[in-house]
Each structure stands twice: as structure tokens, then as C-alpha cells.
Design a protein around this nucleic acid. Sequence first.
DNA 1: AAATATACTTACTTAGTAGTAAGTAAGCAA
DNA 2: TTGCTTACTTACTACTAAGTAAGTATATTT
Lengths: 185, 185
Amino acid sequence: MSGTKEKIVSMADRLVRTKGFNAFSYKDIAAPLDIKNAAVHYHFPAKCDLGVEVIEQEIEKFREQTGKWKQLPENEQLARLVDVFRQHNSQGNICLMGSLATDFETFAPAMQTKVQEMADGIVTWLTQCLEQGRKNKCIHFKGAAHARALLIMSNLQSSLLLSRVMGPTAFRSIADQLMEDLCQK
Amino acid sequence: MSGTKEKIVSMADRLVRTKGFNAFSYKDIAAPLDIKNAAVHYHFPAKCDLGVEVIEQEIEKFREQTGKWKQLPENEQLARLVDVFRQHNSQGNICLMGSLATDFETFAPAMQTKVQEMADGIVTWLTQCLEQGRKNKCIHFKGAAHARALLIMSNLQSSLLLSRVMGPTAFRSIADQLMEDLCQK
DNA sequence: AAATATACTTACTTAGTAGTAAGTAAGCAA
DNA sequence: TTGCTTACTTACTACTAAGTAAGTATATTT
């Protein structure tokens, strides 16, 4: 165990969120970690393997975080989710889903499947959170919970993209409006 | 005049929307048009020039379309805009803004500026449409029109991205919910 | 008829890219 | 102490990218 593998994944995660999956190379990972190109290939033979690992860690992280919020009221859980995006925004990151969705068609099947797995996981959690929140009267919305979950997810995803182009206030504006719509009615 | 230049731009537009700006090469344009790589360079010396042209044509197209809708009620204008996205969705395209926002950080300054110009144009139009629509009581929403415009734009943008990953029903779900929220209250 | 411009092609350079094959140093295991 | 594994490095291959220089065919102008 050297920690190098973890550093590679973390570097890749950052690069996917800043430049996009197709826009970084093994060199971009190797150079700042002061290892050689081939060392990255040792841990991840193909770039696809690295991509899959990055997504798997994100799925795991999401599961952990949402698990911790279980006892909170649903509107609070939603606020925490928005906060995760807020943090990414302040670090200049875009969301993993947003970044990977753009390049989706260029991915190997194994990676496409993983991206879908991640998307399904987030939407499923969000749908349940909304449904339960409506039952407990702390979240208010019209229509099906699943449709609303897609709407919210799309907002969070794009808010980070728009922020990059239109300045970081775009995120705040979207996030605030979103929470207001859902929680103060 | 040979029409080749127009074909190149149209091909590039399609490629940006399907694969992303960094994921296609001049070869991907030249081969299907049965011309050589260098012919593309003849019309667009650098890839950045091609990108700028694609965006400029999109800005022009947006201006033309919205111009045609001027006499319509604002909720109808909004419906037309959603319809433009619906067409892209059925063709497997993602929106130009969404695609370019992901790769934004990797662009040359000239292209970054053009992307911002396009974003500003869309948001400005949408903000005015919403404001006027609220005044005329055919569009209903809370909060500032500008914030709402960002929210809607982010929805349309991401709906195409999510559709690609989660299947084309995702778009319909988001678009329907969106129009319902704004127009039937 | 000669000069010029347009729209390319041919053939190339430079600078990457992912990926691999072979070697090595350090540590542990029998 | 010999062998095996881990975690790399060195040195490469095969390929693709953007971009360029020089030449050519065709049409247009003078």
C-alpha cells in the first residue's frame, strides 16, 4: 500500500470535474504526483478503468452521506444535498454527472453503465426523499415525485455548469430559488 | 462559393452536440464530407475559429427564431423554446450551451467569450419573456425573473444531458413539469 | 492571353495520446 | 537465501491530433 492509487483516483476526480473526462490525459495525473505515466497504467490499465473507479467512489460517497442524514427531516436532507453542490461550486468543480453526461457517447460500455448506475442512484434517493418529505409536510410540490426529482437534479447539475460560464452567483441564484420553491409554501 | 464551408460548420455543430468540442477532430468532419483534413483548415485555420463560428450561427439562429415569436403570447413563446429543445432531444443532440459549458475551462479566450455571449443572450431573452408574461398573466412564478430564467435554462440544458443517460423520457418528464409549473396556476 | 483568386489536395511536421514490454528495487514469505 | 509480489521506471510502439507549406485545378477578371 502506497497511497498512490488513492491519489490517482482523487486527481482524476478533480480533473473530470474541471476539464472533462476526454480533456485530461495520464500525464496530467502523473506529473503533479511526481510519478511516471506508466505508473498510472499499472493501477488502471485503461483510462476506462480509471473512470469506472472514479464513479464507483462517487456512488459510495453519496451512499455514505445520505446515510448520515437519515434521521433528519427531508427538507433538511435536501438542504444538505444542495450544500454539497454549493461546495463544489465554490471550488470551481462541476458535478460528475454533468461532466460525464456530455461525453457519454464517447465512453466504453463499462463506463456508460456506471454513469447510468450513478444517475439512477441519485434519482432514486431524491424521489424517496421528496415523497417522504411531502408526506411529512416539510417539502411541497406538484406532480409526481420522480418527475420532480429529475427537475431538481437537472437544476443542480446545470447550476454548476452555468456558474462556470456566467459567474458563481448563478449557482446561488438557482439554489436559493429551488429551495424556496420546495420548502416555503 | 462551394457550400463546403457551410457543410463544415453544420457538421461541427452536430459533432459538438453529440460528442463534445474536445472529443471530435478535423478528421471527423473531413471524412464524411469527402474532403481532406487540410480543407477544413483552409476555411477555419484553428479549431477555435470553427468553434466561434458554430456559436455565432447559433446566436443568429436564436435571434431569428425568437424574432418570429414576437407577436405570440409569452407562454406560447416559452412553449416554442421548449419545443426547440424537444426537437434536439429526439435527434439525440444535447444543447450547445450544455456541451460547451463542460469543456469551458479548456477553451481559448475567444471561444470562452463567445460562449458567454450566447449564454447572456438566452438569459436576457428569457428574463424579458418571463417578466412580460407575468405582467400579462400568462406565466406565473415567484421571485425575480432573472433568477427564474436561470432556473429554466438550467432545466432545459440538463434535461438533454439526463435524457442521454436515463433515456429520452427524462426530457419529456422535465419539460412537462416545467411548463405545468409556469403556465397552469 | 495572362494574371489573379478561390478552393482545394498532397505531403508533411510537431506534439501529443493511450497503451505496452521489459527491467528493477524493496519487502515479505517459505 | 531463494523466490515471489508490489509498485513502480525506462524506453518504447502505434496512433491521432492540430496545424502548415507548397502545389494544382478551375473559374474570374483584366
